[in-house]
Design a protein around this nucleic acid. Structure first.
Lengths: 226, 226
DNA sequence: TACAGTATTTGTACGGTGTGCAAACAGTGT
DNA sequence: ACACTGTTTGCACACCGTACAAATACTGTA
């Protein structure tokens, strides 16, 4: 991901950068969903033969990793700064910001769950959470466990929200998605699934920031010290 | 998924059933990871031309849905029966059983996050959770929200645990996976990420039943009424 | 028993995928 | 001017999902 020109080397200058390739992949992902981010499509987008991509990345998985890292880099950590209130408020702000950043590129979300998130920005997010949870008074081991719980909740929630749209890009407005779910739930047989049928209107609203924040606060309740 | 022979119809008898195809897909998934579950591979496994699969399923996505449903059907709900103690114990037993069932087929886990889980077994799981949470004293709306929180936690946790292995099948033993993570974390720069570096040993244990249960109990703490 | 009708299966084919290999090319240091 | 090296390309391979038409196997009816 570094664009260092490596001054003393021979051969022709590179026509591209890794960032340009990642950007092209993300553009295709946003425009046409997860299946559109093919090596051939990316290469065409940046005006190069498909094989040229392999000069910059060893394989497609590496490109995907680059896209994931890019997205995690777009998470604004200042929203959880020291002037943002209590540690709870700051964790909540970071979680909401994470959801915003990821839902801005729904086509890329399924790619995150495909492999481990161990890049620099993923680690930075982890470090930030550890700081916030240390401020909360948790000892380091509990802070780490709690940080992972928060990460699992956030990514799980966002992934399931995107999965509900099964890869349609871009993400329709929340109200439309909720309305569509409500329609689908109308077919639930109340005889066999009485509680599910009765809860249909609440379940329709699963894919919303409100549910995300509600669940987040239950998790925060659970990890609060004392 | 029904094997009804439909007695009064013409044409040759089917050579297969939907269940056989789903079984073949699952076998391939278990043996060789997510990429092995191709239509062609499945067809070869059941001894039929690739196109024949399309007599039983409209497209590959439907086969995948069948696999997901099969897996959810393998979740043993009796582990959370009325004689299993408090509502917390029963929810925990169900969650642990869900993890067991899914980690038995790690290659299939990424497929679950690819689309909405709205099949009969998924709804039955939801219904069971609603029952357990009603027993806990939650009103229907909160029970539904809490059920979704639990589902998000369980599937998010399991999906991330599988992702950490990036599709290797079968799942290595927990100790091996934790040891491998610990090795990887040794490269974390303590200067820029002091808390993460210090927490490496805890973070290595993220992919364990112990962490899963710990987080589960924090969630249960958060949703407990009163 | 012969026939018509239909559901199943297959052969073939199309356009797509990731990516390996060898040749062509472009730029730098000597 | 030349050798060297990294970049890019053309071509090819094996594989993918799946559409289409032909062949096949079975049932209900005449």
């Amino acid at each position: 991901m570094s664009a260092a020109p490596t001054p003393g080397r021979t051969g022709p200058r590179r026509a591209l950068t890794q960032d340009q390739i990642v950007s092209a992949a993300l553009t295709l992902l946003d425009a046409s969903g997860p299946s559109a981010a093919s090596i051939r499509g990316i290469a065409a987008k940046v005006g190069v033969a498909p094989n040229a991509v392999y000069t910059y990345f060893p394989d497609k998985a590496a490109v995907v990793k680059g896209v994931v890292e890019r997205l995690l880099g777009e998470v604004d950590h200042t929203a959880s700064g020291d002037d943002a209130g209590s540690w709870r408020d700051r964790v909540a702000a970071l979680a909401v910001e994470l959801r915003r950043a990821l839902l801005a590129h729904p086509g890329a979300v399924p790619l995150m769950i495909g492999g481990p998130m161990d890049g620099p920005h993923a680690l930075a997010l982890n470090e930030r959470l550890l700081e916030l949870l240390a401020d909360a008074g948790l000892d380091p081991a509990d802070a780490a466990r709690a940080a992972y719980l928060l990460i699992v909740y956030a990514f799980g929630s966002i992934a399931m929200e995107v999965a509900d749209q099964h890869g349609v890009a871009p993400m329709p407005p929340e109200q439309d998605r909720i309305a569509a779910r409500l329609d689908a739930f109308a077919a639930i047989p109340a005889t066999h699934l009485p509680r599910t049928a009765a809860a249909a209107s609440v379940m329709a609203g699963y894919v919303s920031e409100a549910q995300y924040v509600w669940g987040l606060h239950r998790v925060l309740d659970g990890i609060s010290p004392g």
